[in-house]
Each structure stands twice: as structure tokens, then as C-alpha cells.
Design a protein around this nucleic acid. Sequence first.
DNA 1: TGTGTTATCACATAAATATGTGATTAAGGT
DNA 2: ACCTTAATCACATATTTATGTGATAACACA
Lengths: 211, 211
Amino acid sequence: MIKVALFEDNKYLRNGLFQLIDGTSGFSCVGAFSNCDKLVEKLNQSNPHVVLMDIEMPGLNGIEGVALIKEYFPSVKVLMDTIFDDEDKIFNAICAGADGYILKNTSPAGILEAIREIYEGGSAMTPSVANKVLKILKDKESRKVPTNFDLTLREKEILTCLVEGLSYKMTADTCAVSIDTVNAHVKNIYKKLQVHSKSEAVAKAIKNNLI
Amino acid sequence: MIKVALFEDNKYLRNGLFQLIDGTSGFSCVGAFSNCDKLVEKLNQSNPHVVLMDIEMPGLNGIEGVALIKEYFPSVKVLMDTIFDDEDKIFNAICAGADGYILKNTSPAGILEAIREIYEGGSAMTPSVANKVLKILKDKESRKVPTNFDLTLREKEILTCLVEGLSYKMTADTCAVSIDTVNAHVKNIYKKLQVHSKSEAVAKAIKNNLI
DNA sequence: TGTGTTATCACATAAATATGTGATTAAGGT
DNA sequence: ACCTTAATCACATATTTATGTGATAACACA
């Protein structure tokens, strides 16, 4: 039985969600609140596994709410729900520790599924939110453009061994070839990567995601 | 009708996915390939809306594949699929431009749903992947270096030289010390990092952002 | 005053690496 | 049939690296 607490200022939505959750077997709604006042007390009394938190609320808003929950009840999962898929809000909610982020137009089945997913340790987000999350992540990290150095399969295999810290002898054993063969491959790898030492090759391999 | 192209080296999985996709109304499988050779040609001929790309493949791997697709066909959506929910792989795939990332244990219905979601402009990921994505985003923000190796300023300086591919001699010149001093520092660095070769030290330095 | 750490240098040597030349086999394309 | 590339192996050797055992001086700190 997954115990869910609701924080939602809209009365009709709150009642609807309560009935959806409490009326579904496997779920129990242990609290339905209209604001985040005395949040810690409310959680101590209702003791939920999952909190479904509206992001837009009078008083303490959802983002402040999730931060507070994660501070006092780190094991309680928090699923944000909102009408806006705004990048900043999403980003702030994630930084505050939200485990999921769904839009209010999500179907009843989708809401229950999301609750179950984060209860089971995963994270949940609607496709448009996921889209924003990936965009945020990409924007934050404009490095690492994979370059193709035309390494052969065997060369990649050898290079992988080197990156893992193996010596030529160990690499030879791992790949079941002679050390002279490893030497030959390394020579070709160096030529293709335009380097002249193992550590340069390793650095390039890691930075360029070659393996 | 959503046109899908498959890249999957496992024959059985490839056939299974082909039948799933091509056998579902609203979906059409316009290509099922075992590797990324001649990727551009294959896409020009099959002209898909969505590519379902295995991340682990011989030759050009899935991450290189998605980068190539996004370079030549930016409007084609790419859904990665893999057996591993490895943070590095996920991160690199996202940076390369993947629109979704699902695990191979995803149900047939889930796979079709993910394809439809990214076709419609959203992003799709399984809960455990979403979890990792949020973690990556949070970690990046707090900019935390997980492990402290207590390297001294001088040791970091020497390590930086090694990462840049310098030999001991060149490092000695750069830091204006004797090669024996470099040797001595390197010994200490290895002890602190618990490694036994330059390339291991370089790999660790890059991966842990030590410099 | 003594103890620990950092940074420097010296000498020694086994092991590993970088690089050359050269050869064979198999697979793939023209 | 001819050519190219991938993958394998062999031999040679100068350089570089890994690791040990020292020593000295400066500095902090207890």
C-alpha cells in the first residue's frame, strides 16, 4: 500500500486527486492539504511514502516545500505537479530534490503510474518535461563533442584496455594476442590519434568518448 | 504513420523489434540494421522519423551514431536503448543529442509509447534512467568533487603536466625542477591516488576533475 | 624542542614503452 | 586479378617510467 499525501490549493483538483488515489487499490491518500503551513507537522502525522506537490501555491510554494521535505524526511519521495513546463521551475524543483515532475494534464492512470514509479525508486516525468530536462542538461554542458578517429574495432578494444590501466602484457593477455600485436595496434592508434604516449592516448580517449 | 529505423546488433532482438514496430498500426519499420556503417546512406534510403539505436554496437557505437545522425539529420529523433543505466553513457548520449533513453527490459507497449512520445516532440526515458538524469543534473549543479585525494599544490601542478601528455623531462623543465624531483612527486601522487602508472593517474585525474 | 609535511635533489635498476623495419594471412572492394 | 586494409606476429633498441633507498632544507604546530 503506497501512502500518498497531497498538497494542492485548488479545492476541486484536491478532492479529485484524493478520490483517484484513495479509490485505487494499492494506494491510500493519508492527507490532502491546501498549503505548506506546518509542513513538518503534517508529514509527521500523515507519514506518507510519496508527496504529490503542486508547484504553485499561496504561502510557502512547492519548491520551498520540496526542499523542506527533503531536509526533514529525505526518504519521502516528492512528485511535483504543475500546469507550467517552465525550464526554471523544473530546474529549481530538481535542485530542491524533487523525484518527479508531471503536468496537470496527465491522465489519471499516468498520475498513478508516476507515483508508483517514484515509490519504487525511479523518477517520473512527462515527455515535455523530460524534454526540458535534457535541454537544461545539454545547455549546461557544451563540451565533449565526440570526434570520430576511425579506429578499428580491434584498436578500440586495445585502447579500452589502456584506459583501464592495463600494461601491454596484460592487454595482450586480455585480448588473447601477442605483445607484439598490441605494440603494432598501439602504433596505429597513436598515428590516428596523433599522440606519442599512452597517457596522451588515454586522455584523448576519455575526453572524446572514444571507447 | 511513424517511420522507425532500427540499429541493433543482436539478430533476435532486431527481428523482435522489427515485428513489434511493423506489426503495430500507426508504426512502420523502414529499416533494421546491425551496425552504423554507412549510417548516412542508410538514413537517406530509409528516411525514418525516429531511430531506435542500441548503444552497445561493434564499430561505430550508438553514441557516435546519434552524434552523426544529429549532424546530418537534425530533425530525426533518436531513442537510445541499452541494457545498462550507466551514468556516463546516459550523459554522453544526451550530450550527443539523444531524445530518449530506455532500458532493454522496457515492455513492448512502453517501447512504442516512447517512440510515439519522442515523435511528438517530447522526450522519453524509463524511470531508472530519469533518476540518473536528475542525479547528473543535481551533481553538476553542486559542482561537487566526490573524492578528495589531498594532493598538494605542487603535486597537482605535476599531475596537470602529465595529463597534458608531457614526459617527466618536459614536466621538470616546465616546473623548473630536476627530473628526480618530478620522479619523487609522481611517487607520492601514485600513492595518494592508489595507482601504478602514468596513464592510470591521468585517467583518474580527468574522471575526478582533479586538476 | 621535537615531529610531521612539503619540496627538493641524487643514484640505481628492472620493467615498460615508443618506434622502426619487415612479413603473413584474410577479407573486401574495383 | 589486383589493391587496400585489418589483424597478426617477430626482432631490435633507445627512451621513459616505476620504484627503491637515501638526503637536505623550510615550515608548521604542539
